[in-house]
Simulated scan of single mutants.
Amino acid sequence: MAYRLTVLMFLLFVADPAAADDRHEWLDPAWWSEGQLPVPPNHKVTSTTETLITDEADIPIFIARPETEGEFPGVLFVHGRRGVDPLIEGHVQRLAARGFVVYAPDLYVGRFVEAMPIEHDYALEADLNDVLDHVLATGTHSGDRVCVYSHTRGGYKSLKLAVTLDRQSDALACYVSYYPHMQDPNAPEPMQVYRYAGEADRLTLPALIFVGEHEQYQRKRGIDMAVGSMQGRGLPVQLVTYPGVGRGFDFREPPVRTFADDLATRDALMRATAFMNRQLRAGH
Protein backbone atom coordinates (compact mmCIF):
# COMPACT_ATOMS: atom_id res chain seq x y z
CA MET A 1 0.00 0.00 0.00
CA ALA A 2 2.87 2.38 0.80
CA TYR A 3 4.32 1.77 -2.67
CA ARG A 4 1.00 2.51 -4.32
CA LEU A 5 0.58 5.70 -2.33
CA THR A 6 4.08 6.82 -3.32
CA VAL A 7 3.28 6.21 -6.99
CA LEU A 8 0.08 8.22 -6.67
CA MET A 9 1.91 11.05 -4.93
CA PHE A 10 4.33 11.24 -7.85
CA LEU A 11 1.45 11.07 -10.34
CA LEU A 12 -0.21 14.04 -8.70
CA PHE A 13 2.69 16.38 -9.33
CA VAL A 14 3.32 15.75 -13.02
CA ALA A 15 3.35 19.23 -14.58
CA ASP A 16 3.72 18.19 -18.19
CA PRO A 17 3.48 14.44 -18.86
CA ALA A 18 4.80 14.97 -22.39
CA ALA A 19 8.13 16.11 -20.96
CA ALA A 20 8.58 13.12 -18.68
CA ASP A 21 11.00 10.27 -19.26
CA ASP A 22 9.38 7.67 -21.54
CA ARG A 23 10.32 4.91 -19.10
CA HIS A 24 8.81 6.75 -16.10
CA GLU A 25 6.04 8.91 -17.48
CA TRP A 26 4.85 9.73 -13.98
CA LEU A 27 8.13 11.39 -12.98
CA ASP A 28 8.39 15.18 -13.27
CA PRO A 29 12.11 16.03 -13.67
CA ALA A 30 11.66 19.63 -12.50
CA TRP A 31 10.14 18.42 -9.23
CA TRP A 32 12.64 15.63 -8.66
CA SER A 33 15.80 17.49 -9.66
CA GLU A 34 14.96 21.08 -8.77
CA GLY A 35 12.17 20.81 -6.20
CA GLN A 36 9.76 22.80 -8.37
CA LEU A 37 6.10 22.02 -7.77
CA PRO A 38 3.78 22.80 -10.70
CA VAL A 39 1.16 25.46 -10.15
CA PRO A 40 -1.96 24.54 -12.13
CA PRO A 41 -4.37 27.25 -13.35
CA ASN A 42 -7.03 28.11 -10.78
CA HIS A 43 -10.05 30.23 -11.67
CA LYS A 44 -13.22 31.06 -9.83
CA VAL A 45 -16.12 29.56 -11.72
CA THR A 46 -19.54 30.81 -12.71
CA SER A 47 -22.26 28.51 -14.02
CA THR A 48 -25.60 28.74 -15.78
CA THR A 49 -28.05 26.47 -17.58
CA GLU A 50 -29.57 26.95 -21.00
CA THR A 51 -31.91 24.74 -23.01
CA LEU A 52 -31.44 23.57 -26.58
CA ILE A 53 -34.84 22.97 -28.17
CA THR A 54 -34.84 20.66 -31.20
CA ASP A 55 -37.60 18.88 -33.10
CA GLU A 56 -36.96 15.80 -30.95
CA ALA A 57 -35.98 16.98 -27.48
CA ASP A 58 -35.52 19.87 -25.06
CA ILE A 59 -31.97 19.41 -23.79
CA PRO A 60 -30.71 21.34 -20.74
CA ILE A 61 -27.04 22.27 -20.94
CA PHE A 62 -25.14 23.02 -17.73
CA ILE A 63 -22.37 25.49 -18.58
CA ALA A 64 -19.43 26.36 -16.35
CA ARG A 65 -16.68 28.82 -17.20
CA PRO A 66 -14.03 30.92 -15.46
CA GLU A 67 -15.20 34.24 -14.04
CA THR A 68 -11.95 35.75 -15.30
CA GLU A 69 -12.25 37.92 -18.39
CA GLY A 70 -10.62 36.53 -21.48
CA GLU A 71 -10.91 33.70 -23.96
CA PHE A 72 -10.91 30.05 -22.92
CA PRO A 73 -11.09 26.87 -25.03
CA GLY A 74 -14.22 24.73 -25.05
CA VAL A 75 -14.95 21.25 -23.73
CA LEU A 76 -18.05 19.13 -24.37
CA PHE A 77 -18.69 17.02 -21.25
CA VAL A 78 -20.64 13.81 -21.94
CA HIS A 79 -22.23 12.20 -18.91
CA GLY A 80 -22.65 8.53 -18.04
CA ARG A 81 -25.59 6.67 -16.52
CA ARG A 82 -26.03 9.18 -13.69
CA GLY A 83 -26.97 12.01 -16.02
CA VAL A 84 -25.93 15.49 -14.85
CA ASP A 85 -26.59 15.55 -11.11
CA PRO A 86 -24.88 17.64 -8.38
CA LEU A 87 -21.93 15.23 -8.15
CA ILE A 88 -21.31 15.49 -11.89
CA GLU A 89 -21.79 19.26 -11.83
CA GLY A 90 -18.93 19.33 -9.32
CA HIS A 91 -16.65 17.61 -11.82
CA VAL A 92 -17.73 20.05 -14.53
CA GLN A 93 -16.92 23.00 -12.28
CA ARG A 94 -13.54 21.57 -11.27
CA LEU A 95 -12.70 21.23 -14.96
CA ALA A 96 -13.86 24.77 -15.74
CA ALA A 97 -11.63 26.05 -12.92
CA ARG A 98 -8.64 24.82 -14.92
CA GLY A 99 -9.43 27.37 -17.65
CA PHE A 100 -12.13 25.91 -19.92
CA VAL A 101 -15.68 26.72 -20.95
CA VAL A 102 -17.42 23.40 -20.25
CA TYR A 103 -20.76 22.41 -21.77
CA ALA A 104 -22.52 19.50 -20.05
CA PRO A 105 -25.84 18.54 -21.68
CA ASP A 106 -28.21 16.25 -19.76
CA LEU A 107 -29.26 13.99 -22.61
CA TYR A 108 -31.54 11.93 -20.36
CA VAL A 109 -33.72 14.86 -19.37
CA GLY A 110 -34.17 15.71 -23.03
CA ARG A 111 -35.61 12.24 -23.71
CA PHE A 112 -37.37 11.71 -20.35
CA VAL A 113 -34.95 8.87 -19.57
CA GLU A 114 -34.65 7.99 -15.87
CA ALA A 115 -31.18 8.19 -14.36
CA MET A 116 -29.13 4.96 -14.29
CA PRO A 117 -30.80 3.28 -17.30
CA ILE A 118 -29.85 -0.27 -18.25
CA GLU A 119 -30.49 -0.06 -21.98
CA HIS A 120 -28.88 2.54 -24.22
CA ASP A 121 -31.06 4.78 -26.40
CA TYR A 122 -29.25 5.40 -29.68
CA ALA A 123 -31.20 8.63 -30.19
CA LEU A 124 -28.96 10.17 -27.54
CA GLU A 125 -26.04 10.21 -29.95
CA ALA A 126 -28.04 12.29 -32.45
CA ASP A 127 -29.00 14.64 -29.60
CA LEU A 128 -25.35 14.94 -28.62
CA ASN A 129 -24.53 15.84 -32.21
CA ASP A 130 -27.19 18.58 -32.11
CA VAL A 131 -25.65 19.91 -28.90
CA LEU A 132 -22.22 19.99 -30.52
CA ASP A 133 -23.58 22.01 -33.46
CA HIS A 134 -25.27 24.38 -31.01
CA VAL A 135 -22.09 24.81 -28.95
CA LEU A 136 -19.98 25.54 -32.02
CA ALA A 137 -22.52 28.07 -33.32
CA THR A 138 -23.37 29.92 -30.11
CA GLY A 139 -20.77 29.02 -27.47
CA THR A 140 -18.58 31.57 -25.71
CA HIS A 141 -15.36 29.56 -25.95
CA SER A 142 -12.40 30.35 -28.19
CA GLY A 143 -11.50 28.41 -31.31
CA ASP A 144 -13.57 26.48 -33.83
CA ARG A 145 -13.18 23.04 -32.22
CA VAL A 146 -13.72 21.55 -28.78
CA CYS A 147 -12.45 18.49 -26.97
CA VAL A 148 -14.96 15.82 -26.01
CA TYR A 149 -14.56 14.76 -22.36
CA SER A 150 -16.56 11.97 -20.75
CA HIS A 151 -16.80 9.18 -18.26
CA THR A 152 -18.33 5.68 -18.11
CA ARG A 153 -21.13 5.27 -20.70
CA GLY A 154 -20.45 8.77 -21.96
CA GLY A 155 -17.23 7.35 -23.38
CA TYR A 156 -19.27 5.20 -25.77
CA LYS A 157 -21.53 8.09 -26.82
CA SER A 158 -18.43 10.23 -27.39
CA LEU A 159 -16.86 7.48 -29.48
CA LYS A 160 -19.96 7.28 -31.66
CA LEU A 161 -20.07 11.07 -31.97
CA ALA A 162 -16.46 11.19 -33.14
CA VAL A 163 -16.46 8.16 -35.44
CA THR A 164 -19.97 7.15 -36.54
CA LEU A 165 -21.15 10.75 -36.90
CA ASP A 166 -17.65 11.74 -38.09
CA ARG A 167 -17.30 14.84 -35.97
CA GLN A 168 -13.60 14.09 -35.55
CA SER A 169 -13.20 15.46 -39.07
CA ASP A 170 -14.71 18.90 -38.51
CA ALA A 171 -15.51 19.73 -34.88
CA LEU A 172 -13.52 17.76 -32.30
CA ALA A 173 -9.88 18.27 -31.34
CA CYS A 174 -9.39 15.39 -28.89
CA TYR A 175 -11.04 12.63 -26.87
CA VAL A 176 -10.66 12.36 -23.07
CA SER A 177 -12.51 9.77 -21.01
CA TYR A 178 -12.54 8.32 -17.51
CA TYR A 179 -13.06 4.52 -17.43
CA PRO A 180 -15.14 4.64 -20.64
CA HIS A 181 -17.60 1.94 -21.58
CA MET A 182 -15.83 0.79 -24.75
CA GLN A 183 -18.68 -1.36 -26.02
CA ASP A 184 -22.29 -0.91 -27.12
CA PRO A 185 -24.24 -1.14 -23.83
CA ASN A 186 -26.92 -3.14 -25.61
CA ALA A 187 -24.50 -5.78 -26.91
CA PRO A 188 -24.82 -9.32 -25.45
CA GLU A 189 -22.71 -10.40 -22.47
CA PRO A 190 -19.89 -12.13 -24.42
CA MET A 191 -19.41 -8.96 -26.46
CA GLN A 192 -19.23 -6.92 -23.24
CA VAL A 193 -16.49 -9.12 -21.76
CA TYR A 194 -14.48 -10.31 -24.76
CA ARG A 195 -14.87 -7.57 -27.38
CA TYR A 196 -14.81 -3.80 -27.67
CA ALA A 197 -16.61 -1.39 -29.98
CA GLY A 198 -15.02 -1.46 -33.42
CA GLU A 199 -15.32 2.31 -33.63
CA ALA A 200 -12.30 2.56 -31.33
CA ASP A 201 -10.04 1.35 -34.14
CA ARG A 202 -11.28 4.23 -36.31
CA LEU A 203 -10.79 6.98 -33.74
CA THR A 204 -8.09 9.20 -35.19
CA LEU A 205 -8.33 11.94 -32.56
CA PRO A 206 -5.56 12.19 -29.97
CA ALA A 207 -7.03 10.30 -27.00
CA LEU A 208 -6.31 10.21 -23.26
CA ILE A 209 -8.05 7.56 -21.13
CA PHE A 210 -8.02 7.17 -17.34
CA VAL A 211 -8.91 4.02 -15.42
CA GLY A 212 -8.44 2.70 -11.91
CA GLU A 213 -6.54 -0.52 -11.30
CA HIS A 214 -9.62 -1.90 -9.51
CA GLU A 215 -12.15 -0.95 -12.16
CA GLN A 216 -14.85 -3.58 -12.78
CA TYR A 217 -13.26 -6.50 -14.62
CA GLN A 218 -15.53 -6.48 -17.67
CA ARG A 219 -15.04 -2.73 -18.10
CA LYS A 220 -11.29 -2.67 -17.63
CA ARG A 221 -10.79 -5.63 -19.94
CA GLY A 222 -12.60 -3.79 -22.75
CA ILE A 223 -10.58 -0.62 -22.15
CA ASP A 224 -7.28 -2.50 -22.13
CA MET A 225 -8.15 -4.43 -25.29
CA ALA A 226 -9.33 -1.33 -27.14
CA VAL A 227 -6.27 0.72 -26.20
CA GLY A 228 -3.92 -2.15 -27.06
CA SER A 229 -5.49 -2.48 -30.49
CA MET A 230 -5.47 1.27 -31.07
CA GLN A 231 -1.81 1.53 -30.13
CA GLY A 232 -1.02 -1.44 -32.36
CA ARG A 233 -2.59 0.47 -35.26
CA GLY A 234 -0.49 3.52 -34.49
CA LEU A 235 -3.41 5.61 -33.26
CA PRO A 236 -2.55 8.46 -30.84
CA VAL A 237 -3.99 7.08 -27.59
CA GLN A 238 -2.56 7.06 -24.06
CA LEU A 239 -3.91 5.03 -21.14
CA VAL A 240 -3.24 6.09 -17.52
CA THR A 241 -3.99 3.40 -14.90
CA TYR A 242 -4.12 4.51 -11.26
CA PRO A 243 -2.98 1.91 -8.70
CA GLY A 244 -5.21 1.25 -5.72
CA VAL A 245 -8.17 3.10 -7.27
CA GLY A 246 -11.56 1.79 -8.37
CA ARG A 247 -14.57 3.04 -10.27
CA GLY A 248 -15.99 6.53 -9.87
CA PHE A 249 -12.86 8.11 -8.39
CA ASP A 250 -13.58 11.39 -10.19
CA PHE A 251 -16.84 12.12 -8.36
CA ARG A 252 -17.14 9.88 -5.28
CA GLU A 253 -17.88 11.94 -2.17
CA PRO A 254 -17.20 11.39 1.55
CA PRO A 255 -17.48 9.15 3.47
CA VAL A 256 -16.69 6.64 0.68
CA ARG A 257 -14.10 8.89 -0.96
CA THR A 258 -10.50 7.94 -0.23
CA PHE A 259 -7.20 9.80 -0.29
CA ALA A 260 -6.19 7.72 -3.32
CA ASP A 261 -9.40 8.81 -5.12
CA ASP A 262 -8.48 12.44 -4.49
CA LEU A 263 -4.90 12.05 -5.70
CA ALA A 264 -6.02 10.27 -8.85
CA THR A 265 -8.69 12.89 -9.56
CA ARG A 266 -6.28 15.79 -9.18
CA ASP A 267 -3.65 14.12 -11.32
CA ALA A 268 -6.20 13.25 -14.02
CA LEU A 269 -7.45 16.85 -14.13
CA MET A 270 -3.90 18.16 -14.45
CA ARG A 271 -3.06 15.67 -17.19
CA ALA A 272 -6.31 16.33 -19.04
CA THR A 273 -5.77 20.09 -18.79
CA ALA A 274 -2.28 19.92 -20.29
CA PHE A 275 -3.40 17.42 -22.94
CA MET A 276 -6.47 19.38 -24.08
CA ASN A 277 -4.60 22.69 -24.15
CA ARG A 278 -1.94 21.14 -26.40
CA GLN A 279 -4.52 19.71 -28.80
CA LEU A 280 -6.70 22.82 -28.92
CA ARG A 281 -3.69 25.06 -29.47
CA ALA A 282 -2.50 22.76 -32.25
CA GLY A 283 -5.56 23.73 -34.28
CA HIS A 284 -6.94 20.21 -34.78
Rank of each mutant, 00 (worst) to 15 (best):
H79T: 09
G248L: 02
P29A: 07
G80I: 01
H91E: 13
D267T: 08
R167C: 05
N277L: 10
M191W: 04
A260Y: 02
V84G: 00
G155Y: 01
Y108E: 06
F275S: 04
T51S: 14
D130L: 03
A115M: 05
H214P: 00
T138I: 02
R247C: 03
A207N: 10
G143I: 09
Q93C: 15
V211I: 10
G212H: 03
N186V: 14
A19Y: 00
L263Y: 02
V193C: 04
M270D: 11
M9N: 12
T273S: 13
M225H: 11
G154N: 03
V14L: 03
I53R: 13
R111M: 08
Y122D: 07
E67L: 11
P66V: 12
G154L: 03
A19W: 00
A268S: 15
C174L: 11
H214K: 13
Y108N: 06
R23M: 06
A162E: 06
Q279F: 06
L172W: 10
T51A: 11
F62I: 05
Y194I: 08
Y149A: 05
R257Y: 09
D224Q: 15
S150W: 02
F10A: 05
R202F: 14
D201W: 13
R145Q: 11
A274S: 15
L5E: 10
R145C: 05
R278L: 09
T68H: 10
N186M: 07
L128Y: 07
M1K: 11
A123L: 11
G90T: 08
E213L: 02
G139Q: 01
T138Y: 08
R266T: 15
V240P: 00
S229P: 03
I223V: 15
G212W: 01
V176D: 00
D224W: 05
G83N: 09
S33C: 12
H141S: 01
E89Q: 13
M182Y: 11
S150L: 10
A126Y: 09
R81P: 00
V92Y: 04
R82L: 05
M270Q: 14
Y122A: 09
Q168S: 13
P66G: 15
G222M: 02
Q216S: 04
D58P: 00
A260H: 04
